[in-house]
Computed example of a mutant assay.
Amino acid sequence: MTQWTVHGTRRIYDSEWMSVDLDDVEIPDGERFEHHVVRLPHPSTAVVVVEGEHVLLMWRHRFTTGAWGWEVPAGRLEQDESPEIAAIRETEEETGYRVQVEPLITINPLNGISSHTTHIFVGTNAVKTGEHDPAEAAEVKWVPLNEIPAFIRKGLIPCGITLAALSTYLTLQRTT
Rank of each mutant, 00 (worst) to 15 (best):
Phe151Gly: 02
Asp14Pro: 01
Asn111Leu: 00
Ile107Met: 06
Met1Leu: 13
His119Lys: 03
Val49Thr: 14
Trp70His: 11
Glu147Leu: 05
His36Thr: 14
Phe63Cys: 00
Glu131Asn: 13
Ala46Pro: 11
Val6Phe: 01
Ile12Thr: 12
Thr2Ser: 10
Glu51Trp: 08
Gly155Glu: 06
Tyr97Asp: 05
Ile105Arg: 15
Asp14Arg: 13
Asp23Gln: 13
Glu94Asp: 07
Ser115Ile: 12
Asp24Asn: 13
Glu26Val: 04
Glu78Tyr: 01
Val37Pro: 01
Val143Tyr: 10
Cys159Ala: 12
Gly69Ser: 07
Val37Asp: 03
His35Ile: 05
Ile152Asp: 02
Glu31Asn: 09
Asp133Cys: 04
Met18Ala: 14
Val25Ile: 15
Ser44Asp: 13
Pro73Ser: 11
Gln173Pro: 01
Arg11Glu: 15
Lys128Met: 06
Val122His: 07
Thr118Arg: 09
Tyr13Ile: 03
Gln3Pro: 11
Cys159Lys: 07
Ile120Trp: 01
Gly69Thr: 09
Arg39Tyr: 10
Leu110Ser: 07
Thr175Asp: 03
Ala165Asn: 04
Thr118Gln: 06
Met1Tyr: 08
Pro41Gln: 06
Ile105Thr: 14
Ile120Met: 11
Ile105Asn: 12
Gly69His: 06
Gly69Val: 10
Trp59Val: 09
Glu78Gly: 04
His132Val: 03
Glu51Gly: 02
Thr129Trp: 06
Ala126Gln: 01
Leu156Trp: 10
Gly69Phe: 08
Trp59Asn: 04
Thr64Ile: 08
His119Thr: 05
Ser44Ala: 15
Leu172Ala: 01
Glu102Ala: 15
Pro144Gln: 05
Asn146Glu: 15
Phe33Thr: 11
Pro109Val: 08
Ile12Asn: 10
Glu78Pro: 00
Thr2Glu: 14
Ser167Lys: 11
Ala126Val: 09
Ile120Gln: 04
Val48Trp: 05
Pro43Cys: 05
Asp29His: 08
His42Pro: 02
Asn108Ile: 03
Ile88Thr: 03
His116Pro: 01
Thr45Gly: 02
Ser115Trp: 12
Leu77His: 03
Pro158Trp: 00
Gly112Ile: 05
Glu93Arg: 14
Glu92Pro: 00
Lys141Glu: 12
Thr106Gln: 12
Pro43Met: 11
Thr171Ala: 08
His35Glu: 14
Asn146Lys: 14
His54Gly: 01
Asp24Lys: 05
Ile12Asp: 10
Val48Phe: 01
Ala137Ser: 10
Thr5Asn: 15
His7Ser: 06
Thr168Ser: 14
Glu90Ala: 03
Gly112Cys: 00
Phe151Val: 00
Glu93Asp: 08
Ala74His: 09
Asn146Arg: 14
Arg32Val: 01
